[in-house]
Amino acid sequence: MPLTPLDIHNKEFSRRLRGYDEDEVNEFLDLVIKDYEALIRENKEMQNQILALQERLNHFSNIEDTLSKTIIVAQEAADEVRNNAKKEAQLIVKEAEKNADRIVNEALNKSRKISLEVDELKKQASIYRARFRTLVEAQLELLTEEAWESLDINKQEAPIAAAE
């Protein structure tokens, strides 16, 4: 058990014939008590400071751990966001490529269809021209026949006038 200032103060020495001067011993003991009390107070203050510093150290260690975990979580989140963005970009590119292919295929199909329609219209126009030419030639042939010349135009006008 540690020695206290009260123990020093209450200490009684046995008396002998040729012992030390009692007043001198008491004065010295008072100095020892005073210094011992100061040392005890200083020791308690140091222990309190150590406890306070230990608490601060623990607090900052906790903050450091929290920050480290936060940085790790933030890095993981950033990596996840980056990966998701890459995946989304790839999906967008694939979708755009599909749409481009679809549009090109539709345009090609329309072009083929229009080309076929143009060819068909050319054929029909050619047939129409040939038929029209044939018709015009037949009508021209009819007009140039001698039978028309033999008809008297004046004779035909008279029955039309009588009918009116």
Rank of each mutant, 00 (worst) to 15 (best):
M1W: 01
P2E: 08
I8S: 03
I8E: 02
H9E: 15
E12T: 07
Y20P: 13
E24D: 03
N26Q: 11
E27W: 01
E27S: 14
F28N: 13
D30M: 05
D30V: 08
I33M: 12
K34Y: 08
D35Q: 13
Y36T: 11
E37W: 00
L39H: 09
I40Y: 00
K44P: 00
K44R: 07
N48P: 00
N48T: 04
L51C: 08
A52Q: 03
L57Q: 14
N58G: 03
H59E: 13
H59W: 02
N62Y: 03
I63D: 06
I63R: 11
T66I: 07
T66A: 12
S68E: 14
I72M: 08
V73W: 07
R82P: 01
N84Q: 09
E88V: 07
E88N: 04
Q90T: 02
V93Y: 04
V93A: 15
E97H: 03
K98S: 12
D101R: 05
N105Y: 03
E106G: 02
K110N: 15
S115T: 10
E117I: 02
E117Q: 12
D119T: 11
E120M: 04
E120F: 03
K123L: 14
A125I: 13
S126M: 03
Y128D: 09
R131W: 01
F132A: 06
T134W: 08
T134E: 13
L135I: 09
V136E: 07
Q139Y: 11
L140V: 04
L140T: 08
L143A: 10
T144L: 06
W148T: 06
E149I: 03
S150C: 07
D152Q: 15
I153N: 09
K155L: 15
E157W: 11
E157S: 10
I160S: 01
A161L: 02
